[in-house]
Amino acid sequence: MDQLRSVCRQAISENKAAFIIGYTEDKHHHLKPFIAHNVEETEKLTFNCNAVNNLAVFIHRFHNPSQGKIGIVLKPCDLKAINALVQENRVKREDLYVIGVNCSGVVKDQNKEFSKENTQIKCRSCASKTPAWFDVVVGESAEFELPEDDMAILMKQIDEMTPEQRLEFWNAEFEKCLKCYACREVCPMCYCEQCIADKTEPRWIESSSTTRANFTWNMIRAFHQAGRCIGCGECDRVCPADIPLSLLNRKMGMVAFKEFGYRHGTDMNAPTLIGTFSTSDHEEFIR
């Protein structure tokens, strides 16, 4: 990844970016997020199939246009988050220096070699191995074999259930939830200054971790992501209880496409889905 390092070095030395949000390798040979503040630190940057994190989440922390542009290393899938954030006026395109990387899939378990089985769920339905846009692009993408999309199978199973069975299914899943809010914190699209789950006057979402309160929390999170979730699957990855959270988001994405032909995170100039309306939206379900 000498190419990546030299690009990042240049970016800082030529003042194209004030700092770089990228990945570094830790002693376990896993990749983790790392902020390179100066030319020396760019030597620590790297990229490989262990680069699971979506770094777009760090934009909210370091966004300060007066300090200069944010340099950020992004996989093609993570780039969608930037599209969505620009759409929502959260960040300006010109405040970013995007270092796109061509991607050949990332692993599910960083302790194991990359293989057909050991791929992130999101890679299984991914069609973009090269970033749609960038300021500079590095690396090469290789074809790789895709295993079956587990989430799509699970989705089909749930679609065939009765309402009672569905509630039972989610009941069993949300019973496991610990309310650690890792799903929220890791999500590039969850950037509210104060989350509805933290509001106490009135308290809309109970802070107790009963299955019912967990259900409400996860439903509301899924709804707040409706037409916004870019499908990076970070929520799935970090959930300590292994709840298939992205299933809800994926469902919302499918509805957005079916009903409105809207694909989230693909066009930074498109109006947002929930922020707009059409007088011809369908309403046969309304009495």
Binding site: P163, R166, L167, A222, G227, V255, E259, I274, T276, F285
Partner: peptide, 14 residues
């Protein structure tokens, strides 16, 4: 527009 989305989500979760 919100209901169109929420209805499907509610349906999906039972």
């Amino acid at each position: 527009r919100r209901w169109i989305m929420f209805r499907e989500l509610a349906e999906f979760t039972g």
